[in-house]
Structure formats: C-alpha cells, structure tokens
C-alpha cells in the first residue's frame, strides 16, 4: 500500500520537500516562503502607504512609503532567490532526475500561463468594449518602432527555441550563446518600449488623463487601454527577461544538460507566451485601433 510507504518515507527523509534548505537539518521547514510572503505583502503595504501619503492627513510621508516599498521589494527578491537557490540550484546535480518533478514544473507553468490569460483578458475586454462604442480621435500609434519591436520579439522566440534545441543536442556553447542573444533581444525590446513611452508621454502628450488645476479631464479612454495593456505586457517581458537571465547565469555556471533542462523549458514557455500576447496586442491595439 502506498500510504504505508508514504508514512515510512517520512521517517527516512526520502521524499521530504525541503531537505536542502534554511534552516538546515529539517526536512519540512523553510524560512524562504515566509520571507518571500512578507516581502510580497510589504509591497502591497508600501503601495497602501503611498496612497495614504498622497491623500495626506495620516502623518505618513512619501519617504516612508518609498522606504517600505523598496525594503519589501528587497526582502521579496531575497526570499525568491533563497528559495530558488535551495529548491533548485544548490543540489542541482545531486538530485535525482525524475519525470514527475519535471512534469509538475511544466504543468505549474501551464497553469500559471492560464491565469495570465485571465489577467490580460480584462484589459482586452476593456479595449473591445470601448472600441464597440467608437474610439474617437486617436493618435497614430502604429509606426516603424512597433514593426521593429514585433519582428525582434518574434525572432527572439525562434532564437530561444534553437537555443533549447542546441542544449538537447548537447551543444552547450551554442545553447548559452543563443540564450544570451535572446536575452539581449528582450532587453532591446524593453528599451524600445521605454523609448515609445517617452515619445508618447513627453513629446506627443498622449496621456490617459490630465489633471489641470485640480480638475480631472478624461482625455482619452483609448489611452487607458493602450497604457494598461502595453504596460502590463512590458512588466511581463521584464519578468521574462529576469527568468531568462537566471537561466542564463545558471547555464554559464555549468548547469543544465541534454537530459536536465526543465527550467530552460519553463522559462522558454513563458517567453513564447509573452511573445504571443504581443502579437495579439499589436493586432488589436496598434493596428486594430488605427486601421479599422
């Protein structure tokens, strides 16, 4: 009976989830989740303090809010890195390769991407909702920069794919090079987006709302959709670049092999997903809004 084995295994530490961890020596204890959660919650508390400071009258300054936010982000990142290190990195070669642990990571990523569809869909629904009622006069958002960025992102997905293929074929050098190239392309894409934001916000004065003399003017509902969706996507590309960056560093340090590359696969899945979302976004927002 497997239940017996289950109970028995606990006695020998065969299947304990956190053998390699902080505090060391226990099998089912880890400080990282708690640290990460406190850091993550602290970001929300920081946002709350920021809003309270903006309202005034609570004796909270922007400095406090900023300090709490930055501290929390630091704690959050520290927790995530500690968890990554003990959970995946530290004993990479000692752990037994198991099909089960690989498929759970892949399934976890698929499920996460499912939730991402829902996150993005709210923004798309807003856009289609206002589009049905007529967008009114909108600036020309579609241009050569968008075409360049789109081609770059699509190309990066292909490069990443060939990087994975190289790893599976045992060509580590090619794997690391192509992964680095993907990362670089991602960073250039983000740079392009930042430049576009600068252009729109500072030069063309294309903003969702203007506050003039205490009066709020909803200048452009389309701008809300534009910045919400491109901003959300930009955050996702950034997160994707961070994930690829972690994989890249681990690759440089000699981890991964033709048989062991599940985190390359999950990070790549995420990158491809972000790429597909961008294509939808270009079709809907950039082309759909101006051409249709």
């Amino acid at each position: 009976m497997s239940a017996t084995e289950d109970a028995g295994d606990h006695g020998h530490g065969g299947h304990l989830p956190a053998v390699e961890d902080f505090p060391r020596g226990f099998g089912e204890a880890s400080w990282w989740p708690f640290v990460t959660a406190i850091g993550g919650s602290g970001i929300y508390v920081g946002a709350a303090l920021f809003l309270l400071a903006a309202r005034g009258g609570f004796g909270i300054g922007m400095g406090t809010a900023a300090a709490v936010s930055i501290g929390s982000i630091g704690l959050f990142v520290f927790g995530i890195l500690g968890w990554l290190y003990h959970g995946f990195v530290a004993s990479f070669w000692q752990r037994h390769k198991s099909e089960q642990s690989e498929s759970k990571l892949v399934w976890g990523m698929y499920a996460f991407l499912g939730s991402e569809i829902a996150t993005f869909s709210a923004g798309f629904i807003y856009f289609f909702f206002i589009q049905a009622g007529g967008l009114g006069e909108i600036p020309d958002v579609f241009g050569s920069l968008v075409i360049f960025n789109t081609l770059l992102l699509i190309a990066s997905s292909f490069v990443l794919h060939f990087s994975e293929v190289a790893l599976r074929n045992g060509n580590r050098k090619r794997f690391v090079t192509l992964l680095g190239a993907t990362l670089l392309m991602g960073i250039i894409f983000i740079g392009g987006q930042v430049y576009e934001y600068y252009e729109f916000l500072a030069v063309k004065n294309f903003t969702p709302a203007a506050i003039a003399g205490g009066e709020v003017i909803y200048s452009n509902p389309f701008a809300s959709a534009f910045y919400a969706l491109t901003g959300l996507h930009g955050l996702h590309v950034t997160l994707g670049a961070v994930l690829l960056g972690i994989v890249f560093v681990r690759g440089l340090r000699g981890q991964y092999s033709a048989e062991r590359h599940v985190s390359v696969k999950t990070a790549a899945l995420y990158w491809h997903f972000v790429d597909v979302v961008w294509i939808f976004l270009v079709a809907a927002i950039y082309i759909g809004a101006t051409a249709l």
């Binding site: 989830p17 089912e28 989740p33 959660a37 406190i38 919650s41 968890w83 759970k104 399934w107």
Partner: peptide, 22 residues
C-alpha cells in the same frame, strides 16, 4: 491521491502567508 506533499510545498506556504497581511 497518495502524494508525498503538494507539488510545490514552498509556494503552498507563500500562498498561505500572503493571507494574513491581506
């Protein structure tokens, strides 16, 4: 289901510890 633990025990713990601050 005869599993040793959840698929991601640490994510499980993080998910809980987000709740009290929430």
């Amino acid at each position: 289901i005869g599993a040793d633990d959840m698929a991601f025990p640490r994510i499980n713990a993080i998910a809980f510890w987000l709740l009290p601050p929430g």
